[in-house]
Design a protein around this nucleic acid. Sequence first.
DNA 1: GTCTATATAGAGATAGAC
DNA 2: GTCTATCTCTATATAGAC
Lengths: 190, 190
Amino acid sequence: MKKQKTRDHIIEAADQLFYQQGYEHTSFAHIADDVKISRGNFYYHFKTKDEILDAVISARLDKTRKMLSQWEQGGTSPQDRIKCFIRILITNRDKILNYGCPVGTLTTELAKLNHASRAEANALFTLFRCWLQEQFIQIGCQEDDADERAMHLLARSQGVATLASAFHDAKFIDQEVTQMCEWVDGYAPV
Amino acid sequence: MKKQKTRDHIIEAADQLFYQQGYEHTSFAHIADDVKISRGNFYYHFKTKDEILDAVISARLDKTRKMLSQWEQGGTSPQDRIKCFIRILITNRDKILNYGCPVGTLTTELAKLNHASRAEANALFTLFRCWLQEQFIQIGCQEDDADERAMHLLARSQGVATLASAFHDAKFIDQEVTQMCEWVDGYAPV
DNA sequence: GTCTATATAGAGATAGAC
DNA sequence: GTCTATCTCTATATAGAC
């Protein structure tokens, strides 16, 4: 556990850099610089760049699962829980304005690279999708309908992140978040 | 004009490859291979990779302007013209399922690379944004309101492309296109 | 576990012949 | 206008000392 301190630092630095600069554009040298270790030492912890990517995705999956289960406990109604999801656009506004959505931009990049870990990255989307579907089911939606709404919300969040980043427009995020929250409240107890 | 045949071939090949594999991931060698010229000849036409990117963006801007002015003539009502925009998701469905939206994925990549041509790529978004705004004004919206709706539609299209690509889900595109078309018709003559 | 030094491959870019 | 040959730089990855 304690022995893996450097390894964890590498994962954390890689996570940030992959998000800010993209996976391919980020070099070992850059990560090593951030962690303040030599490039040689690097390979003691990870044999290939792909291994770091897998570790980063794995860490993001863990973090996301924890976040979702926290929302699960926090919200009093499924609508409230869904609004927790919508409001991450506000919580992470500054980062989104600069680098877009960490999930969307990674999956898009890996798709273009036709990368082996593409499926793992997509699992991040699936995590949100299934969680949202479950909330819509609790509202009273049928399974298919709930999934459709989950996808709808995911897509809107993605679009908002992309456009807000392109135009560096914080106000647009706020507007759309408000609209999405209203949309969710429109599906109040059926 | 006729002398630029090779140059045009390069731009066209680069355009496709940048879309399918991303800008950074596409090498001169790959483009040259596609065009069936040597890497050396390449540099007669373009001195740097950035120059090709600018030429590609410029070509995309031209093509987009032509497409928008065609829609301008084709549609009988502003609603119809806006639906032309929405339906490109259907027209380009197969490519979108594989590579996402060419505008969104390029601007996102250039943003992460902090590339000098980032603004030029964003101009592609602006082209659609202003055109859509104009249509909403013709429907009867105020200027600010029209822009808000333009951004809203752009964002939804982006989100649909991103999610459809991640889950390789053609049906999702169709569903969302239907919903967006209904949304537009909801803004019939005010 | 961390370092320095080095191997190897691929990229962008140039020079000069044809 | 197109080619071959080559330069240079940077990236991933390895070897071996400490």
